[in-house]
Amino acid sequence: MEVRFAEGHICFLRYDFRGATIHPAGTVTPDRIRDADWKAVTPEIRTTEGEILFIPREQRPDLERFCRRHGIARKARRDVWEDLLEPFLDTWIAPEDERATVERLREAGFPPEEVAEIRRRLAPLMHAYNFDGMVWQWAILGLYDLLSAANAPFVDSRLQDALGDPAAFYAWTMATAAR
């Protein structure tokens, strides 16, 4: 990912997530940005269309300055993908923590059957990414990690192809994140 901040726009010189409106490159102007979170684990902007676009961590200050200059509000959100992808972390999850995760997902509108289906669909991809790819993430796997797994060159392309059309998969991840 390569991003450049200009006075009146953010230029994504290289955005690796297939299906994104700015893939492989594109520009976003302030009028297309609903809000941003420069303090997130991976800084992000949310467009007026509901798309979440990520900014490299080392450019947090640039994103904050851009947003302040253009009156773009900071809004922190819980990444529902962190709960959906919890079973693929390289750690043991205590039963009480799993119950809390299930409850948060239920409150967000995810019935247990849907959670199980999402996890079943993504299990091969996330195992290949976090374990076979030796990422070994033990604390958080979120939307950024899911998109990384779906596009990482070290993940077997057959697993990525099994996700279906990249634009449709990307749209599904964004719609899920919006819940």
Rank of each mutant, 00 (worst) to 15 (best):
M1D: 02
E2D: 15
R4Q: 06
G19W: 02
G19H: 03
A20E: 05
T21N: 04
H23S: 07
G26L: 01
T29Q: 04
P30Q: 10
R32L: 15
D35W: 12
I45R: 03
L53M: 09
Q59I: 09
Q59C: 14
R60N: 07
R60G: 15
P61Y: 06
D62F: 05
L63E: 00
C67Y: 02
R68H: 12
R69C: 10
H70P: 04
R74N: 14
R74L: 13
A76W: 03
A76N: 11
E82W: 05
E82L: 07
L85K: 07
E86T: 12
E86I: 05
L89I: 08
T91K: 13
V102L: 15
R106M: 04
A108K: 11
P111E: 14
A116L: 11
R120Q: 15
R121G: 08
L122R: 00
A123N: 13
P124T: 11
M126S: 05
H127P: 00
N130M: 05
D132Y: 09
Q137T: 14
W138A: 14
A139Q: 14
L143G: 02
Y144T: 08
L146Q: 01
L147A: 05
S148T: 12
A150W: 02
A150F: 01
N151C: 09
A152N: 09
P153F: 10
R158Q: 13
Q160A: 05
A162I: 09
A162N: 12
L163H: 06
P166D: 03
A167M: 09
Y170M: 02
T176N: 07
R179I: 08
